[in-house]
Design a binder for these strands. Sequence first.
DNA 1: AAATACAGCAACCGCTGTTAG
DNA 2: TCTAACAGCGGTTGCTGTATT
Length: 334
Amino acid sequence: MRKLLSQNGLKKGPWTEDEDLKLIQYVHAHGPGNWRTLPKNAGLQRCGKSCRLRWTNYLRPDIKRGRFSFQEEETIIQLHSVLGNKWSAIAARLPGRTDNEIKNYWNTHIRRRLLKNGIDPVTHTPRVDFLELSNILNAAKINLSNFLNLQTLVNPQVLTLAALVASSNKENRELFLNNNINNPMNPNLKQQDPNFTCSPSNFPSTQNVSQTHPMQINDVQLPPTNLVNMNTDASSQDILMRTRLTEDCFNISNYGSQFTSVVSESSSFQPLYTVPTTQTFDDSVFSSPITSPSPFISSSTFINNHSTEDERESYCSNMFKLDIEESFELNDFM
DNA sequence: AAATACAGCAACCGCTGTTAG
DNA sequence: TCTAACAGCGGTTGCTGTATT
């Protein structure tokens, strides 16, 4: 039970209307500040800190109360992915919202939803435990290495699934790519520029934020978008183009530069931002959605009209929707 | 209808950085 | 330079209303 009186006899706990009125009247007359002397001068049995918090978090006239809009929610997520738990910095970019309010909203709504949908709310990347599909396959005694060596004998759909699995696990991914590099039987090998360099201009970055949102984040320390010399061997390029894993499965663009850096760390992965939005593959039946909802445009495109909890829920859950055709039957190829 | 669990949020706590004397 | 007061911040607590059993 929270004690309602502090040691020096000052009141604690919820504010009454009368106290609010006194505080408002005093601040209107003298302006905010001098919080230490304010309670005494205003006739309040509160500490200055309590008065300041009450004013800044609740009584300030410019505070916007009520439900967060979807636009606001998106902004919070984007800013949090860059700023972390810098609630005041986030609040500074959301007019009318307090850091406390945003913090509460994050902890009670957004954080929970991200967790539920397999997004780590700290790193804004898919949670490791959601990337254990390959382990499940391993447990089922499916040897990915052998599996991949059969690629010329099996339907490309299987290869696509394998790529999908491999992509979710760095070790398997590298194994997968090596298999394709070293396999002279691979008919899909296409020679491409081995010195392909992926420049930051190819990546969605916070620059996009400022282009599409009124907020400014110039003072934000951004994750480094180093020039990444991509080891884009032909096979990995080809396979990745087939899988379009990031857009289809993880909706990577929703996590902008953060995820970009993660992808970059995985050496031979080429971000699919450089891949044309429409891909037609000779023998693949996998669909390739033309666009994924970029965080910086989605709010003004098809997402923005959906603002109910359920719809937000489904929006997040789509981040991990595996875009596998309904008719796809793994057993057909085993 | 009562008990319990859960969610939401206002308020508090403690720490840190800044400023003035 | 030191120190105390102030202000701000992020994390946590606990009250309240609502949903579920």
